[in-house]
Design a protein around this nucleic acid. Structure first.
Lengths: 305, 305
DNA sequence: TATCTCTGTTAACTTAAACTCAACAGTGAG
DNA sequence: CTCACTGTTGAGTTTAAGTTAACAGAGATA
């Protein structure tokens, strides 16, 4: 049937709210998208979209068409996914979204090895600290710590997300080694501004649990920036072990309270719940878990990587 | 997405059980179908169909793909249908299946007038007395008398299907006018072999109901052949009024028992039950009912047509 | 077992659809 | 009022789809 080929284009126009954005995502020009939509409307004998150069909305016919067209596209996608999952080699473009620091330090290094193992997969890695709408942005996997899954997202744990309070040896030499977390009130505590309750630090040891309200004169929304400040002997900070682990091992930073644990925000992969998980997504998740080391990630262990 | 355009082709191959038959129905060559299927399999990285030159079967992947692909195609068809029904002008190819006699006498004459009224519709009229599988044969409307609808077919009555026992004036002059149906046992009764219980004729008048077992030396599976025998003074036969009506009016045949009625097999249109009835089907049904004259069809009335 | 018929495949070529480019009209935002 | 970016469309290019023709293969039939 004639119009079926235009369905992905029509859905993309709605999804990305415009011909230009849809064209970009589809890898076409806006004129191609425009022609295909016009052709579809001619075939159907009905206008699907009201559009000016700045506004776009569905007509009544367009709304009806959209409902069924989306079902058709989803079914077609499921058809493809179930086959590629069942028998075919993982292939296609995998769009991965990860926070800046974790992505830079631990996701981007694994990509070349992943692609080497699955040569038919191509990867589009997006590093961004902002929360992402997987559906709207066409993201296959979003990596997050402290997951807050959407009703239609699945969260799969990639690694634990331990954190510790640390400082450089230089800082300790100058300001003293605190013997108890309560002494942090006397120190310049750098804060990660994206954290919930960034200035409330919780510590646990055996049956002891304490919460310290800390403060300092520097906060940033980037953990690596904080790390660099620490390396220069500037204050103490609570850093995830995936950032500080290497420096700890190298002796450049020191965990101030090694016998205490802090609440951890585990690292998760989020993906859209669907009947058949595309194989490329599944193999990526399996690969990442193996690569990171599951419950004992390489950044938490003695051996370097 | 790449493979969606091949879905109708893939579904057609399964539906028509072969590349050649599918090609014919799709208006393509068998090599085009072959190429498109091969290309789809290459995209998916999986074989969908086992095929030799004489046999065709789905692989496991093919079965999985088929289930979803059929959903996609149905949804795409619904998308198109609901729009063309909502707003568009009726268009497209309408495949009508009718029995030989009724089709020849009453359906084929209405087609030119129907197409004149709906110029964007094209018609493929198939006259065949065999029962048809609407799904397998890609038939939009099948006209039948004495409907036996399938669980997923809808029956819509087009006209009543009266019948009468008749003979030519020449036959009556030679063999006498029977005064009661029971006297038919003394006559040469021609039978329509496709009829259930072809030799059991039921008559009703007021409160009288009688059933006569008749016989004769000629039976045929074509009512028009029987009509021609009657016109030549050869026997009596039970004919539908849609065949005999015109001859009765012209005085060429005589209804032997005009005060009796016989069980009638109404004339129905059968079509596949679906959420959105294609507009071309709906307008055809409306047109046919109007054309035939609803409960008082033109072949049953005095006025000629 | 040999022959025939009809299937599906595929190379070479043709055709049609899809697409790009470029220029333009139109519309909100500032 | 100007600007930036939208969607449209004619002209031309590119690519995919399709056809033709030849062929190998597999059931059916004699």
């Amino acid at each position: 049937m004639d119009g079926i080929g235009a369905i992905p284009i029509f859905i993309a126009v709605i999804k990305y709210k415009g011909f230009s954005a849809a064209a970009e995502h589809l890898g076409l020009t806006k004129s191609a998208v425009s022609k295909r939509i016009s052709q579809l409307e001619a075939q159907l004998g009905a206008k699907l979209l009201h559009r000016t150069t700045r506004k776009l909305s569905l007509t009544e016919a367009g709304e009806q068409y959209y409902v069924h067209a989306l079902k058709a596209l989803t079914a077609a996608q499921d058809a493809q996914d179930c086959v590629t999952q069942l028998q075919g080699e993982p292939q296609g473009k995998l769009r991965i979204h990860a926070p800046m620091s974790f992505g830079h330090l631990h996701v981007s290094p694994l990509i070349p090895e992943f692609i080497s193992r699955y040569p038919k997969i191509s990867v589009d890695l997006v590093l961004d600290d902002k929360a992402v709408d997987l559906v709207a942005q066409g993201v296959d996997v979003a990596i997050r710590s402290g997951h807050l899954p959407d009703s239609n997202l699945v969260a799969r744990k990639l690694a634990p997300g331990n954190s510790m309070v640390c400082a450089s040896p230089e800082y300790i030499a100058k300001h003293g080694q605190p013997s108890h977390p309560s002494q942090l009130t006397e120190h310049n505590c750098l804060l990660f501004s994206y954290s919930d309750n960034a200035n409330q630090w919780h510590f646990s040891q055996d049956k002891e649990h304490c919460q310290i309200e800390v403060n300092g004169n520097y906060q940033a929304n980037n953990s690596e920036a904080l790390r660099q400040a620490l390396l220069k002997g500037f204050g103490v900070a609570r850093l995830p072990t995936f950032i500080a682990g290497k420096d700890i091992k190298a002796g450049k930073l020191v965990n101030l309270f090694p016998s205490y644990t802090m609440p951890h925000k585990d690292i998760y992969a989020l993906y859209i719940a669907r009947q058949y998980l595309p194989k490329k997504v599944r193999v990526f998740l399996d690969f990442a878990i193996e690569y990171f080391g599951s419950d004992t990630p390489y950044w938490d262990t003695e051996s370097d990587r």
